[in-house]
Design a protein around this nucleic acid. Structure first.
Lengths: 151, 151
DNA sequence: ATGGGATGCGCAAGGTGATTGCATGGCCGC
DNA sequence: GCGGCCATGCAATCACCTTGCGCATCCCAT
């Protein structure tokens, strides 16, 4: 059961993930031991799923990031699973999301430049199975503002 | 300059963010001191931007997540900035991305249920400034498979 | 060819942060 | 009113992070 202390911990954790447990505890108004125990419980309960490193792919030479939306061939009941399995095999696919609605799947794809992106698109994306429709949007920036999250 | 040891460190870090520096070092084939120094340099260089806690919003009672795509009124040169500033003020907006193409901005919005989502949509989303077009997709699942990243 | 400087490494030690044991207090049920 | 359970703070211990030192390698200048 999440209470007000948990919410404060989560809020500060999202706002500043680099805080030590002691710093987080001070901001959340509990001791470090309590803070640690509550984070442990939130993690065990699956509220906190993981701590993921956020990579700036541009600094690794991947200047292009594209969001691709797919509508799949609905007549084949295995289209979805086969598409996802194949998409997972593409190294440049760094994110996969599934939806309810007009669009079935979204892939986030990175590439070194537009030439590289064209190559990936032709050789790895268009060859994915069961594609009925596809639309690409080039990502300009990602603005994540966790400080105002509903906690 | 990123070398092969850096790539191994990043690969294992993305694959298993919970590893200690010593565990990561062992898998990357360097000592813990070297591993720690390289991570420090990758962080200072901005390659590693942060370590973000990944929250399962469903476990916090937010059962609904919707991806909203906006086309903005291009005739107003300040439309973009005013829209982004207003979107940031909405607590239920947990992600903001901007694009080049037919769609300008994408917001990720969470809500407790469909009733709550309708309320947020009517009272907070539709009132954002300079909306020319809007499309919603309900997120079913997020599949992040970093193990196959291009490193 | 040689020497010097720079860089990065491993080792080990010191420091910091995380984790745990213990005692205490509060709350709830009987 | 009492006992049990749960969560807490405190302090100690443990684990991990960080840093100093010496060494090796590479590159550049003479």
């Amino acid at each position: 059961m999440i209470d007000e202390a948990d919410r404060r911990i989560l809020r500060h954790l999202l706002a500043d993930p680099a805080l030590t447990t002691a710093e987080l505890a001070e901001r959340a108004g509990v001791t470090a031991a309590t803070c640690w125990r509550r984070i442990e419980k939130l993690t065990d309960a699956g509220v906190i799923r993981s701590r993921q490193a956020v990579i700036d792919w541009r600094r690794l030479g991947y200047e292009v990031e594209v969001s691709l939306r797919f509508t799949l061939d609905k007549t084949n009941p295995r289209a979805f699973d086969e598409f996802l399995a194949a998409a997972r095999e593409v190294p440049e696919v760094i994110g996969i999301e599934t939806f309810l609605g007009r669009v079935d799947v979204r892939l986030n794809v990175i590439a070194r430049d537009m030439v590289h992106y064209q190559q990936i698109y032709r050789e790895r994306i268009l060859t994915l199975p069961h594609i009925a429709d596809i639309e690409a949007l080039m990502l300009i920036s990602t603005i994540k503002d966790s400080a105002g999250v509903p906690l």
